[in-house]
């Protein structure tokens, strides 16, 4: 223990917290992805009158581990004529914003890697990066389907970034802070979703579904049109990284919704972290529910929906909130 104290004394408490936190985040990311793949397959199964994975471990619980091990053991195939630096880079880049976003999410009153006073800006700035990796993947793959998927993804992310931001701003106004922890604490009197921000929540949730490329907004990887979209040419672990990033993005999107609108870790009786995960996973379940219920929207409908409906409504909501607060 003496050694640890020394280290802490030398490098400072914050750094140790950060390193431990990062390790924790990595574990959470992987475990979360494993759980979500299992949940997705079970949810889809039960919604479709099937049972889903069952034979691999009790209730198919070992299924995601088998998948992960298998993907680890797959050949890393690099197709001819790809743009090699870009092709290799994309799956790595897709993972960075995911990790950074986790740092500022308050899982509990004290369980937060680092409470930055511009927390939400960090998340929004880094989550915009993921579209870059999709673009790189689509361009570097030298595949027409990938390219179409990537261009779709860029247009879609630009369109939905704006309502996403606009729907979060009223909450920031009300909490008077950009720090996620302060925002949660501001909800001690009641969740923001019930305090005049129901529409903001709705808009956020729709935009987040689009940002995470989930049905009905899964155009970048629309299976019936674009085979597998931007990751058509990726195999093995590289594909697994995209997969991992997708599920982690879903988790982050739900976690932000929980933090901003559903009172984060606040809740009676149970410890905060349990409440946090209950709320977050419920939202994740709703996103999955969307996927297995709705057909896909068309590309122009998707953009129209954002520019003509979501953004004006979000903007009006922002002005009204601002006006009321000022008065």
């Amino acid at each position: 223990m003496c050694g640890l104290d020394n280290i802490i004394a030398i490098v400072g408490k914050e750094i140790v917290r950060l390193i431990l936190g990062l390790i924790g985040v990595l574990i959470v990311v992987v475990v979360n992805a494993l759980i979500l793949t299992w949940v997705e397959r079970k949810v889809s199964g039960h919604m479709q009158k099937r049972i889903g994975p069952k034979e691999v471990g009790p209730y198919g619980l070992i299924q995601p581990i088998a998948d992960g091990l298998k993907l680890l053991g797959k050949e890393l195939l690099t197709p001819a004529n790809v743009d090699k630096p870009l092709y290799y880079l994309a799956p790595v880049i897709v993972f960075i914003p995911v990790l950074v976003s986790f740092i500022v999410i308050p899982f509990d009153g004290f369980l937060q890697v680092k409470d930055i006073n511009v927390g939400i800006l960090v998340i929004l700035a880094f989550s915009s990066l993921s579209v870059l990796s999709i673009l790189i993947a689509g361009w570097g793959s030298n595949n027409k389907y990938s390219l179409i998927g990537a261009t779709r993804s860029v247009a879609q992310n630009i369109a939905y970034e704006i309502p996403l931001l606009l729907s979060l701003l009223p909450v920031v106004f009300m909490a008077n802070s950009l720090s996620l922890k302060d925002i949660v604490e501001a909800q001690r009197d009641g969740w923001f979703v019930w305090r005049w921000q129901f529409f903001a929540f709705l808009i956020y949730f729709i935009a987040a579904t689009a940002e995470t490329n989930r049905t009905p907004f899964d155009l970048p990887e629309a299976e019936s049109e674009l085979v597998a979209g931007f990751h058509t040419e990726y195999s093995g672990m590289r594909f697994a990284l995209f997969f991992l990033a997708e599920y982690t993005n879903i988790f982050i999107a739900s976690a932000i919704a929980t933090t901003f609108f559903l009172g984060g870790y606040l809740g009676p009786v149970l410890p905060g972290i349990v409440w946090f995960f209950i709320k977050t996973y419920f939202l994740v379940f709703v996103i999955m529910w969307f996927r297995w219920t709705f057909p896909r929207v068309r590309f122009d409908q998707l953009l129209n929906f954002s520019w003509k409906i979501l953004i004006p409504v979000a903007f009006a909501n922002l002005i009204v909130t601002g006006g009321i607060l000022k008065l």
């Binding site: 397959r41 199964g45 099937r50 049972i51 889903g52 994975p53 069952k54 034979e55 691999v56 198919g60 299924q63 088998a66 998948d67 195939l77 197709p79 299976e223 085979v227 597998a228 990751h231 058509t232 040419e233 990726y234 195999s235 594909f239």
Partner: peptide, 16 residues
């Protein structure tokens, strides 16, 4: 329900 054995993930791309 081939999903029981974990084989329901039909991938449209041969790479996966």
């Amino acid at each position: 329900d081939i999903a029981r054995f974990g084989a329901e993930v039909f991938r449209p791309s041969p790479r996966q």
